[in-house]
Write a protein that binds this DNA or RNA. Sequence first.
DNA 1: CGGTCTCTTGACGGAGTTCAAAGCTAGTGG
DNA 2: CCACTAGCTTTGAACTCCGTCAAGAGACCG
Lengths: 195, 195
Amino acid sequence: MLAVLKENIEKTLGRSVSDEVLHAVGDCMFRKTFDKKVLLAEEGQSCRYVYFVLEGSCYSYLIDAKGEKHAMQFALEGYWMSDLYSFFSNRKGIYTIETLEPCQMLLLNRQGFNRACDICPEIDRFFRLLIQNAFLALQYRLAKTNSEDAEARYLEFSQLHPNFIQRIPQYLIASYLGIKPQSLSRIRKEMVSKK
Amino acid sequence: MLAVLKENIEKTLGRSVSDEVLHAVGDCMFRKTFDKKVLLAEEGQSCRYVYFVLEGSCYSYLIDAKGEKHAMQFALEGYWMSDLYSFFSNRKGIYTIETLEPCQMLLLNRQGFNRACDICPEIDRFFRLLIQNAFLALQYRLAKTNSEDAEARYLEFSQLHPNFIQRIPQYLIASYLGIKPQSLSRIRKEMVSKK
DNA sequence: CGGTCTCTTGACGGAGTTCAAAGCTAGTGG
DNA sequence: CCACTAGCTTTGAACTCCGTCAAGAGACCG
């Protein structure tokens, strides 16, 4: 069960992790299942957990001044999901997190996080890297949004995350790319006719 | 001279900092002056310093596949500037950082950073918060980019940073907002005639 | 004083939005 | 097991915002 987690931590840290460390982390987390369309975090409330997806999928979004949702991140098996800012700062979150399918998750709360960091410095380092990577991904995404058109962004997204295309509804991918579902539909049609 | 730095650290940490801590930090940094149009960091090279602006201004940008520059961040007196990802990960940076005016800076390199963290844990915490805040600002900016038109974004920017409007060339603000200088010029004209 | 850099203005074009309607699909309850 | 409904996707037509190309005006610097 922890095999997926081990793989993920090792990939992020860039080195192998002992079973000791792995189980120390595992002991700080607990397992939970969710139905689809369940809210794991809500805008305006402190985000108390970091989620590691064992099975299923979820996504985070924020709601703008006009009440419209904007998808920010997707997570399938082997991905982490949280409102990291809220989790670490303990302030009210800006994201809502919702399951797309029935899910099995590993949950880590602040207490567990602190315990895990005390036990082994690798974990502290791991979460630091998690934020750094999220930060980098965001920089990259903003740059792409400002320099490339929707078709190029969709093409890159579909090549980078072919499994997302399979399992995530198109209108959410459109939202993630910053366009309307109608536009994405037209872009896809256009791309097929090009080939 | 360290008064500006003290104010900044206290504001970020949310509590007052002893002169002891402040001087410990100050001793890990060194002062340097730069002319205008000097590169403080370059894309593709490791960003070795975190800069704290005592006087002057600078900005960071990245260059897209078409060779076009995109302004990412501005810094006046009392602001920090760096390619934080590159600085902390020691990997090659994606940003170029350039002075806009003659500058006086405090520089912190990795060695100094580690020393400062050893001396007092507040510093470690402070830089963690710096990344978190940068991350949050970026999330906010991406959300605005995807939900509001250029006029609304400019209006908010000018209200949030009236001093930036004074001192930063308009074509760089346009770039920051993700539009062309011509468009910003038209938007400004439109806004004047509305009033 | 001339050259470069920045800002403005005009005309046109194109990418994406809006509004509206119809087709498709999957889940629900009878 | 089928029918119905609700949510997702597709399509069309008109419109809007912003980009592109081009030219000129103003500011700054050597």
